[in-house]
């Protein structure tokens, strides 16, 4: 079927040849596929299965089938779940707005030749190679209400009234954690946008300039359309990374204070492992799984279709 699009060297093989190819491919494919099925797919499927059971997770304890009870409880009787869901949505929206836009702006600026360009790029990118758990430890220190740098800075510039318990105040803790994630995450979209800008055809830009287009017009008519595939990649990866946020929250607040920084990924884990309720944990995990697949599958279908041509 796919052979139709191939160059003449591989003309439409009959089915038998294709089956032989499968046989040939198996030894190369099998190790990766076995690992994938055993240690990625199986745990995820098992999480879905366990969402229909009640189970503490202890080996000598038998899971009891309870049907949809866990979902009913999660959706009707679990305020933390809604807190986590809301926070995850807030996180996705903020991530699409702030670090992505900042990354684009920085990429546009750093795409010009200038003194110190490589140093600038490194400064913005290096936080991205740090472990999130390390970044969490750094920022917890910066946010320390008594000896942390942020409160000290505010006092030094005469804004002592703005001093806060940055991670202790349920009203703002989520946003404090988010600031750390912006600091860490900008480099990621910066690098992708920089790579995307290499694909902007320079001749088109020059031609538009010669025709008298100003900078904004060139940006709108040439740069933005050429960046469209990059923007699609950055958007989907930003959403997915936002759903995965876990290390930063664990390292800075553990979901508190008063569950105010709880997110779906962490709540699923805490329900299963900490609260010994694999059924409830599985239900939250299933919600997360469904949401993720709804985002990933259309993106992949589009990418692979585009690759065909």
């Amino acid at each position: 079927m796919t052979a139709v699009h191939h160059p003449p060297a591989q003309q439409a093989p009959p089915r038998r040849r294709s089956d032989r190819r499968l046989l040939q491919a198996l030894p190369y494919l099998l190790p990766a596929v076995v690992l994938y099925l055993g240690f990625l797919v199986y745990p995820m499927v098992d999480a879905v299965r366990l969402s229909f059971f009640e189970w503490t997770g202890f080996r000598n304890d038998e899971p009891v089938f309870v049907g949809l009870d866990n979902y009913v409880r999660t959706f009707t009787n679990d305020p933390v779940f809604y807190r986590a869901l809301t926070n995850s949505v807030i996180w996705v929206v903020l991530s699409l707005l702030i670090p992505m836009l900042l990354g684009l702006l920085l990429a546009l600026a750093l795409n010009r030749r200038m003194v110190g360009r490589n140093l600038f790029r490194s400064v913005f990118y290096i936080p991205a190679v740090f472990a999130s758990i390390t970044v969490a430890a750094m920022w917890r220190w910066i946010y320390n209400p008594n000896v942390g740098s942020l409160n000290q800075l505010l006092e030094a510039v005469g804004l002592a009234s703005l001093q806060q318990e940055w991670l202790g105040n349920p009203q703002i803790a989520l946003y404090s954690v988010f600031v750390a994630s912006v600091w860490q995450g900008v480099g990621f979209s910066l690098v992708l946008f920089l790579a995307g800008l290499q694909q902007v055809p320079a001749e088109l830009v020059d031609a538009a300039r010669v025709d008298g287009a100003n900078r904004w017009q060139v940006f709108k008519a040439v740069t933005v359309p050429a960046l469209r595939p990059t923007t699609a990649v950055v958007t989907i990866l930003t959403i997915i990374n936002s759903l995965k946020v876990y290390d930063l929250v664990v390292g800075m607040t553990g979901g508190g204070p008063a569950q105010s920084t709880q997110v779906l990924a962490l709540w699923s884990y805490q329900q299963s492992i900490t609260n010994h309720d694999f059924g409830q944990g599985g239900a939250v995990a299933t919600v997360l799984l469904v949401v993720s697949l709804c985002l990933v599958v259309p993106y992949l279908v589009r990418t692979l279709k585009a690759e065909e041509h």
């Binding site: 494919l29 995820m44 999480a47 759903l243 995965k244 884990y269 995990a285 997360l288 992949l300």
Partner: peptide, 24 residues
């Protein structure tokens, strides 16, 4: 299709399977 299934799985948050991974 094999490629798509492989990649789709890897984009799902790890935390979905953490509990069962522990028991496995």
């Amino acid at each position: 299709l094999v490629l798509a299934v492989l990649v789709a799985g890897s984009m799902v948050p790890i935390q979905v399977g953490l509990g069962p991974l522990f028991t496995t």
